[in-house]
Design a protein around this nucleic acid. Sequence first.
DNA 1: GGATTTTTTGCAACCGGTTGCAAAAAGATT
DNA 2: AATCTTTTTGCAACCGGTTGCAAAAAATCC
Lengths: 332, 332
Amino acid sequence: MAATLKDVANKAGVSTSAVSRTFTDGASVSDKMRRKVEKAAADLGYSPNFLARSLTTRRTKLIGLVSNNFHNPIFLEVFDLFTRGLQDRGLRPLLVNLSNETDPEQSVQMLRQYSVDGVVVASSTLPPAFSKAFRDKKIPVVNTFGRYSSSPEVHVVGIDNVEAGRMAARALLQRGYKDVAFLGGPETATSTQDRLKGFQEELALCPDVTTRHSFAEQYSFQAGRSEMLRLAQGGLAEAYFCGDDVLSIGVLSAIKDAGLNVPGDIGIIGFNNMEMSRWENIALTTIHQPIKQIINSSVELMTAMLDEPDRYPEARLFPCQIIERDTLRPLG
Amino acid sequence: MAATLKDVANKAGVSTSAVSRTFTDGASVSDKMRRKVEKAAADLGYSPNFLARSLTTRRTKLIGLVSNNFHNPIFLEVFDLFTRGLQDRGLRPLLVNLSNETDPEQSVQMLRQYSVDGVVVASSTLPPAFSKAFRDKKIPVVNTFGRYSSSPEVHVVGIDNVEAGRMAARALLQRGYKDVAFLGGPETATSTQDRLKGFQEELALCPDVTTRHSFAEQYSFQAGRSEMLRLAQGGLAEAYFCGDDVLSIGVLSAIKDAGLNVPGDIGIIGFNNMEMSRWENIALTTIHQPIKQIINSSVELMTAMLDEPDRYPEARLFPCQIIERDTLRPLG
DNA sequence: GGATTTTTTGCAACCGGTTGCAAAAAGATT
DNA sequence: AATCTTTTTGCAACCGGTTGCAAAAAATCC
């Protein structure tokens, strides 16, 4: 059994408060006392129990990290950045996987039962009500990759998907494409809807450009590939804005199978700028979503909220960026 | 402030023990009492605080999930499977990212301070001493993807890498390759060493087959590609067993750039059977590591250890399997 | 209906810590 | 040396629960 505060106090012949104070920074203890206690603690291999401590301090340093996206490779980077960011600040991520559609309400309760200090909801597909449930229970929450709204009820960090859609449209227009298409991810995702909205809005300014759209069932190679094979039955557009890089790569594979050539016959622009888009045999032109900045900002915001729980909600949006590679015809 | 046990007891006009008992299964409470308490609890939105409870029950249901691999795409699946497996059993993963080489000892202490019920070390590169440190503190631990040893000191679940190396060698021999090579991952990883050992042992049985080996610096596209470009300066072997699928894909890209053709000029066999190996434009022949079984078994073993902490250590090994695709010449 | 057994309930101590408060000790001032 | 400040320390209550034990209540038996 691990040594407790009391054991150390006995061994050192002092009160438990003295021991407690040696292990809480900012508390007042004389040097002599500190040495005595530290000696005894070292002998016993003692270190304070965080959970018992949390009972009185009301701080567990646990942060719920909730996601329902364990398939898209960018989420590995997301987890990497989150865990490091939190760890660097002495916080501990309690990971919650919401993939299998278990009742979200239950997760809210569970995280409350573990007295997490805050919750990060890293998902663009979970309904806003989910994040709000935490806020209602007075648990600090930030919704990373959440939907931007002019009157956010919870803190949101991410990108402006409408603007990203516009950006894609402009990229295609600038390269002289006249017949362009949107090949989105899951139709119900707000990010898909927003990007389509921006894409169409921007194109509407150019009456001579025609546009169309369709959706893949999920962000996967196969979904992109089969959707493109289906589209290839009819007439194809000159260029496609795809909802995701893996999707794009599936699309590229279908195009190749159809005997067509990129960017000669068809242009493709992806989204996310995943690691593999840079690979020489892929070289996908894509839109970079500044994940690092988004996550770091989310972590910062979370730590700020720990000190100021009633902080007025804000939306933090980061600009995306076109990454020029080889799947769109060159500019001008 | 959330309602406490005492609040419920007051509201229901009963003792705190009565309330506590209604919320611990297996405790004896009359139906009338239970109804009364549940009513009061519902009115107050009460649910028990797990951490306070853990103080007396000595069970937090927290499981440390430690990894230092946040780059290899298969780990996204690993996290997915682990989190689901643990959640299904009412356990909660506390994620620890050891990527940035922070003193492992510190993580041991930290997990102890959070009173985790057990620890899963999901890594093939962390030293065995790390897992042992938990065992020494009487914390149940399973090392998933750990090295097989005939006298394991901690529970290990994974594959037999030596055997996997043999399997790769046999696959190449069966297809008639006479000049074969091993292109491993990081040289220091025990998994790399073991696979090389098995590979060479098997080949040593065929004196007419020549072999050589080299290592990529990490499991990445670029590392595979640049290593292959380097090798292409000298004479190439007929077939390569690569340490990982991403590595293989980098190798394939270099081969293509060199104007060579797979499997006509060179054969490639990868490792892991990642999602992307199945993609039509890659179609990599590879060795499947049964991740699902490994993780599920790890979770099972962990739950078993929670009931029986001094369980005798065992190694659970799962057989790998060749996945035939298009990067090795056909059999026979 | 009374004695006996079983079930239900509350008391009070405990899990491993923290903290407000007042007493004790140390240091400063005259 | 006596008095006043400041710092250090211990007491005891508390954080939010659980649980062994004995008393009270209910159920069973004769």
